[in-house]
């Protein structure tokens, strides 16, 4: 099995999986029916992407494992998503902040992944980028609304950005699999996306009349499987059925 490629795919897909699961929690509890429907669409897009990635990963693994085994039957340390996407929906500002900080990255990442020499990955990226362009527009618009809305919303949006900022740098870290895949022109060199990312994020935050956090100390570990405490709870939901009723079909 091509282990680096397999791990590389999981690294990408886990971000969508965990974020999709997080937004899925909100279904039925949004601030308006319209927003509820919009957020659910984002979750559905992300989970659809996950299925494409994991189906490909399962093929590469070449054994019995299925997309669901990969999604739901790994141990906590084997999930390789960035810390950012597992952060909870503390309030709508956190949900939007998390989405925005990830979408900007996701969009530039997919633009590069489209150029991958791995044709399956470039095809998936090609499909996903349209979805993610919309996510980025949606979350950017909402950051502006909340940032440049009322005094209360500005405070809440600023607090969310301040709290989430510490998880942004990890987006540009490379794992062993990442580096190997860059060498083969399969993977994206995320270190090169950093400049563009922070420029786009800062421009938008300014437009939203928000302050750019000054903190230079960043949290990391997700990509190596060392997560925040939040992930364990998320996984116990995600894995509940597969763990409680092992080896069954649904």
């Amino acid at each position: 099995m091509k282990e680096n490629l397999y791990n590389y795919i999981l690294g990408i897909a886990d971000n969508s999986l965990i974020l999709g699961q997080r937004i899925g929690e909100l279904c039925g509890h949004g601030p308006s029916l319209e927003t509820d429907i919009a957020c659910t669409n984002i979750s559905l897009d992300l989970l659809g992407q996950v299925r494409s990635y994991f189906q490909y990963a399962a093929k590469i693994a070449g054994d019995e494992r299925t997309e669901d085994d990969i999604a739901m039957l790994r141990k906590e340390r084997d999930y390789k998503n960035v810390l950012l996407v597992e952060q909870p929906n503390s309030n709508f500002a956190y949900t939007i902040g998390r989405q925005f900080l990830f979408d900007v990255y996701h969009l530039t990442f997919l633009a590069e992944l489209q150029k991958s020499t791995d044709l399956t990955l470039s095809a998936i990226a090609n499909k996903c980028i349209k979805e993610v362009s919309y996510h980025e527009r949606f979350s950017s618009d909402w950051v502006k609304r909340l940032g440049d809305g009322t005094v209360e919303s500005k405070e809440k949006m600023q607090e969310a950005i301040n709290d989430l900022w510490t998880y942004t740098d990890e987006l540009f870290h490379q794992t062993k699999a990442d580096k190997a895949m860059v060498l083969e022109s399969v993977g994206v060199d995320v270190t090169k996306l950093k400049g563009d990312y922070y420029k786009r994020v800062k421009d938008l935050l300014e437009e939203a009349t928000l302050k750019i956090p000054e903190s230079k100390w960043f949290q990391k570990g997700g990509k190596e499987g060392v997560h925040t405490e939040h992930l364990g709870y998320l996984l116990s939901d995600l894995q509940y059925m597969q763990r409680t009723y092992p080896n069954m079909e649904w």
Binding site: E34, I37, A38, Y134, R137, F138, D141
Partner: peptide, 11 residues
């Protein structure tokens, strides 16, 4: 109007 367009797309 922007939100109306986005909501219309989603709904």
């Amino acid at each position: 109007a922007e939100m109306a367009l986005e909501n219309a797309r989603d709904v």
